[in-house]
């Protein structure tokens, strides 16, 4: 069976089907992350103790006397570095798509490969950050702030892993389609890029919300 509208545009939407599909998916993703953001805002504005580091945790971290607040103990330099890595990967994936439109498959492979490396770099940095938290006894159950922090950043990290799988497929075995259906393959890379930019977009809001404010 031939799948319709993989390359040509549907007359009623003016879009090929995968593009409308990925935007519908991204709309549902907005609601998923929005629910967690909403919980974060509600807890932060409703619970005066939400941003306070529990006394036992402050003692374990040798923070000294007095009240201590989140996100004071989060690693801002690592999160800042991760933000730059994700922004760079957004540029590289859109360059990979543009390279295909110029019929430069070799450059596509280069830019998409860099995107995947950036994603893996992001995960490595995140692993270092998580490992430091766990080694200091900071877990989701430690405080409500850490619960939200791990839920939001963990869900985001799962999305990064999903992006690595899809982009890895398009870089490797999936790239065979370029020889037989180049326009369809270009469209696949475009929708994978839309997803990846969304992952970047979420982090753009997570970074200041969790680490800086």
């Amino acid at each position: 069976m031939q799948i319709p509208y993989t390359v040509e545009e549907r007359p009623d939407t003016g879009l090929y089907n995968a593009k409308l599909g990925v935007w519908l998916f991204l709309a549902s993703e907005v609601m998923l992350f929005g629910a967690l953001f909403s919980s974060y805002v509600l807890l932060r504005t409703g619970d005066p103790a939400f941003m306070t580091i529990p006394h036992a945790v402050a003692e374990a971290l040798h923070l000294g006397e007095g009240a201590h607040r989140w996100p004071g103990e989060l690693n801002v330099p690592l999160a800042f570095l991760n933000t730059l890595v994700l922004i760079f990967s957004s540029v590289t994936i859109v360059m990979s798509w543009a390279s295909l439109r110029l019929k430069q498959f070799g450059k596509y492979r280069l830019w998409m490969g860099l995107t995947i490396l950036c994603a893996l770099g992001f995960m490595c940095i995140k692993a270092v950050e998580y490992n430091a938290k766990f080694s200091h006894g900071l877990f989701p159950a430690t405080s409500n702030f850490l619960g939200i922090y791990f839920a939001l950043t963990g869900l985001h990290a799962l999305h990064v892993i999903g992006g690595v799988v899809v982009n890895g497929y398009l870089w490797g075995p999936g790239a065979k389609m370029w020889k037989t259906e180049p326009e369809r393959f270009t469209n696949r890379v475009e929708v994978a890029g839309l997803y990846w930019h969304f992952v970047d977009l979420v982090w753009i809001f997570l970074f200041p919300s969790l680490y800086l404010l």
Binding site: T13, L15, W23, A27, V30, M31, G34, F37, S38, V41
Partner: peptide
């Protein structure tokens, strides 16, 4: 079609943020 879809998404997102 994308703009219409995103307009709905933004409206629901605002409800999600302000509702609670």
């Amino acid at each position: 079609a994308i703009y219409s879809l995103l307009l709905l998404t933004v409206l629901f997102f605002i409800v999600l943020m302000l509702g609670p």
